[in-house]
Each structure stands twice: as C-alpha cells, then as structure tokens.
Design a binder for these strands. Structure first.
Lengths: 222, 222
DNA sequence: CGCTTTATTGAGGGCGGTCAAAGAGCGTGG
DNA sequence: CCACGCTCTTTGACCGCCCTCAATAAAGCG
C-alpha cells in the first residue's frame, strides 16, 4: 500500500531539488507518496484530477486488453511529470516500475491558480503528445532492431553525461513499450552487442560503444 | 497552391456554422484557405504558430523516414481542430487528403486572448493526446484485422446516424495510419466483408452490417 | 545455498510483407 | 458514348521477420 505523508521542506528528496524548471514551485502544494514495485498509482478509467512528479524510482503507464495483451504508453524517471495524459478519465493506468517516490498535486488546484501554472499544464501535455507521436512512428514503422536501438538511445540521451546507463525496467516492460515480445527484445540486445553498438555490463546496465552506429539504427526518421 | 482569403461572415461554409462548441467564436479571427489534394498545409519541422480547423475535405498528419517509410499520425474531418500537436516545431507535416478548405488562426493570438481560450487549447491538446494513446495500443498490440476493424468502427462512430459511411482516404493512407501495407489492408477489408461484418457499396463507401461483431473485432481493449 | 523470478537461446511456425499480375475506377479525348 | 490510359485496388504466390513454445542459464532474495 502506498505511504502518503505531508510535504515537509526538510523531507524533500534530493531529486526534487534538482529539477530546475518552473514547475518545481507548483509542487510545493503537493504530497509525497511512496509506491512499491508494481503498485498501481492510478487505474485505467479513474478520474484524472491529480498530477504527479517522479522523485525516485520509475513509473510506467499501461493499457491492458481483454485477453491480457499490454501496451506501455511511456516511462517516467525522476524529474518527469505525468498524469496529464487524459481528459476527465485516465485511458492508461500508472504503476511503479520499482519502488518509487512520487510527488502529487491536485489538478484542480493547479487550474484554480490560473495563468502561468495553467500554461505550464499545457506545455507538459504538449510534451507528452510529442513523445506519443515519436512512439507512434516507432510502433508503426520501425523494425524490431530499430525499436530497441531507439529505446536505448532515448535512455542514453536522457542520462547524458553518464557513461554507464541504467535500465530501470525489465525486459517485459521494454517489450510492452516497444510492441514486441520479451524474446525478440533479448535477441536484439544480443545483436546490438555483437555489432559493438552497445555493451551490457549487467542485465540492466549498458554503455554506448558506438554512438554513431546507435543513432543510425535508431534514427531512420528524418 | 493554397488559396487564402479573408474571413467574411457571408462566406463561411456551412460546416463552420455547424460546429457547436465554444471554439467556434475563436475562429472568427481566422482566414479560410483552400488546399488541393496532397498539398502540404505545414511541413515537418516548421514553426507551430498556427492552428487549424477543417471546414471541408480531410487532412492527415504524416511523418516520413529517410528511406520513405511513412506514418500517419491522425486524420481530421470537418469540424476537427489540428495544429496543436507539437511544441515549438511540428513533428508531423499536415497535408490535404483531398481538396479541402481549412480555417486558420494564429496560436499567438489565442494565447494573447488568455483565459478561457487558452484552456480550450489545452483541452484540444488533451484530446489529441487521448487519440494518440488509443493509436499506440492499436499499433503496438493489435492484429491486422483488429486494426482495420478499429479504423472502420472509428469512422462509423464519428459519422453516427449515417447508415452509409464514407472513407475520405485511399488504401495507402489507411495502411500508413494502421502500420500495415496496402495489400494487407485490402485483404482484411475483404475478410471483414466475407464475415458479414461490413459491406462495401463502393471502394470508399461501406455500411456496418454487424455492429456487435465489428466492436468485438475492434475493441479487444478493456 | 536453494528457491523463485527473470533473461537468454534455440527450433519451428504463422502473420503480415514483398513481388507480381490482373482487375476496377475514372478522367480525358476521340 | 466509348476507347484509352492512368491510378488505385484486389488477388495470388512466396518469403522473412517476429512470435510461440520450450529449455537452459542467470540473477535476485530469503
């Protein structure tokens, strides 16, 4: 079960301070909540009156079909904001990829604040839409290898500076994000490794050996 | 080449009057422009400072990869608003599916107007995001047959009331929206027809014979 | 260390893609 | 009105990428 407690300045995790954008002040209104691995943050078809920011851990949004097929909409890492992705009701559920801490604020409070804060909400939604559109191209027109390469490149770009990149999620989550099976993901990772594009030091840790090659595999898009 | 002319009250096409939502007043600021079939309305990587509403015809948003693979983001029919789908720059181009008339207004004007109009912009963006998320599930996890069924159902639902539904776009556009090839789309249409789910009276006109069956094929999603 | 979960690897099959050709729709001009 | 030519669509035969099923290996965790 999620642990919720009121926001205290001296309790704020380091990650919350590192976010340098104008949204930070907004979350002074919020609560921090802890979620265990695989715990639901909000459900499919729940009201969407809260917005969230990841402080620690990682979050995924998921949609399940009647027969169990699953599509992951996106992943959110520390500093990322989510919960804007729907209208009145969420179309995707949100779950903790692993033990995570999330800052929560009421969307209605944001709206009441008006002006700049509302514009911020729009901006966040726009960014979500852009990411979804990139995802559409990946799912609709890229090959398995290109999808995996795009995914690794995305993670590497995000944690720019770090030479070793962490994979917060398991292979099944990657597969459900990329529209593939776990076996195909595994095979493509092996292939990218034998091509000296990337190198895995652990199951969930890799380094980019050939950035050009990775970009070529991933960015067939113009 | 697109024909642009200033908006005059007595020139407004019937479709513009039929849109009953609060956005209509917004477009009093705009211009109407005519685009020929396949003409570009805006390009990939162009600035996104205009927003658009379809009055007549149909519009698609497209993304092209280096080797020519194409993904269609969405289709817009009379009454639909588009152009919000990106941040500073468009990630998808917009083109007329066939000869079309579009109402155009500057996004900056919308922002300057502030308040309600800005909230409207947010709402439109959210709707776009919802559609994109539905599209993600389709591309990531649905079979060819389910994709085509979902597509036909979407069109039929939109033109609810009409017994005969028009397909504004050709098979290639459908394929590039659904992440399939033109041949597969054609085969699935044939299959849906022999299963008495739908019936095509013309290449671009069909009627739903078995709505339950269509929903079952399309809505595997919960 | 033993147990469970997760990841890799292999063999084989099927869905959808590719290539090719025939058919239908449609505007143009005789 | 029909003949012609173009584009779009349908259909068929075959192929290949990715999925399925299965077994092994590795990693987490008490």
């Amino acid at each position: 079960m999620a642990l919720a407690y009121e926001y205290q300045d001296d309790q704020v995790p380091p990650m919350a301070r590192r976010t340098g954008d104008s949204a930070s002040s907004l979350f002074r209104m919020g609560l921090t909540m802890a979620f265990a691995k695989d715990e639901e943050i909000y459900g499919q078809d729940e009201d969407a009156d809260l917005i969230y920011r990841v402080l620690e851990g990682a979050v995924r949004t998921t949609r399940i079909m009647a027969d169990g097929r699953r599509q992951i909409g996106d992943f959110y890492l520390p500093g990322d904001t989510f919960g804007f992705e729907s209208g009145a009701r969420h179309k995707f559920a949100a779950e903790a990829v692993r033990d995570s801490v999330v800052l929560v604020v009421k969307a209605s409070a944001l709206r009441a604040a008006g002006g700049d804060l509302e514009r911020l909400g729009w901006e966040v939604t726009r960014r979500e839409l852009e990411r979804a559109q990139e995802h559409l191209l990946l799912l609709g027109r890229k090959t398995a290898c290109e999808r995996v390469a795009s995914f690794l490149k995305g993670l590497a770009d995000k944690s720019s500076g770090a030479h070793v990149v962490d994979l917060p999620m398991g292979r099944q989550d990657m597969a459900d994000y990329l529209g593939l099976t776990i076996e195909t993901v595994s095979r493509m990772l092996t292939q990218l490794q034998s091509n000296r594009i990337v190198s895995f030091c652990a199951t969930r840790q890799f380094r980019v050996i050939n950035p050009r090659g990775l970009a070529r595999m991933a960015d067939q898009a113009v």
